[in-house]
């Protein structure tokens, strides 16, 4: 077991500002955000619709490039990298779970899970995918295509896919947003179990207070600014 002081910083954000241009002029979505997320932490970003949560998530994951300030994943600054290099970095460090699952419709469940590991050139992709699908309880659905799976099942495949590349940081965008309560619970349970066992850092955007409450930290996004929630460390108030 590593000592407290040896814990690495997974994500470091300094003075992050993001402006997009639109027909009506420039629009600043994120304003001077500073943030540090340590390895193994789980962080929920909550906030009203349009407050900039998803933009922040996208920038943290290196899906887009910010206009000012700096973002570093494990000490690698994203700001100076081009799309080619950022993609490589994502492949190395990052996993994703989306609200609308985004499985590739032309690939079956097993192939979808194998995909990120294959992109990394992992020879054990198939074995890993089989294990993960076993873990999410879908070993009987390996050759089913996304359209043949229910929403909950699709999201379980997506979770298995997210862990297949053994990411250090997992980004989740409203992972239960498209699911009913019962399926949502299953997904949350799976997500946290896997997160725990794999030692992954989790950054999640959600509207679901119940879900947010399960995270180590909750950050509130409001008008482009980010604040630590006062309900900090108050895990699972409803339970």
């Amino acid at each position: 077991m590593e000592s407290q002081t040896a814990i690495e910083v997974a994500i470091e954000v300094k003075n992050l500002t993001h402006t997009v241009s639109s027909k009506t002029g420039d629009l600043t979505i994120l304003k001077g955000i500073d943030l540090e997320i340590k390895e193994g932490e789980s962080v929920a970003i909550v906030g009203a619709s349009g407050s900039g949560k998803s933009t922040l998530l996208g920038l943290l994951a290196g899906l887009d490039i910010n206009t000012e300030g700096d973002i570093a994943l494990y000490g690698h600054s994203l700001t100076t990298l081009n799309e080619e290099k950022r993609a490589l970095l994502r492949g190395q460090y990052v996993g994703f779970i989306f609200q609308s699952f985004h499985l590739l419709p032309s690939l079956d469940a097993l192939e979808n899970v194998m995909l990120p590991a294959e992109l990394k050139g992992d020879k054990m992709a198939r074995q890993k995918a089989l294990q993960l699908l076993e873990k999410v309880g879908l070993s009987h659905r390996l050759t089913h295509y996304p359209r043949q799976l229910s929403g909950g099942e699709q999201q379980r495949v997506a979770i298995a896919r997210a862990f297949a590349s053994e990411p250090k940081i997992l980004f989740a965008d409203e992972p239960t947003g498209n699911l009913d309560e019962e399926n949502g619970q299953v997904i949350i349970k799976l997500l946290f179990e896997l997160n725990q066992s794999e030692g992954t850092t989790l950054v999640m955007v959600t509207h679901d207070n119940h879900l947010a409450a399960q995270c180590d930290r909750q950050l509130v996004m409001s008008s482009g600014r980010l604040q630590e929630s006062t309900q900090n460390n108050c895990k699972d108030p409803l339970r």
């Binding site: 994951a61 899906l63 799309e83 080619e84 993609a87 490589l88 970095l89 994502r90 492949g91 190395q92 990052v94 994703f96 989306f98 985004h102 590739l104 995909l115 990120p116 992109l119 990394k120 896919r161 590349s165």
Partner: peptide, 8 residues
């Protein structure tokens, strides 16, 4: 999606 998964 492939890009988010690290496809260059």
């Amino acid at each position: 999606v492939l890009k988010t998964l690290g496809a260059t």
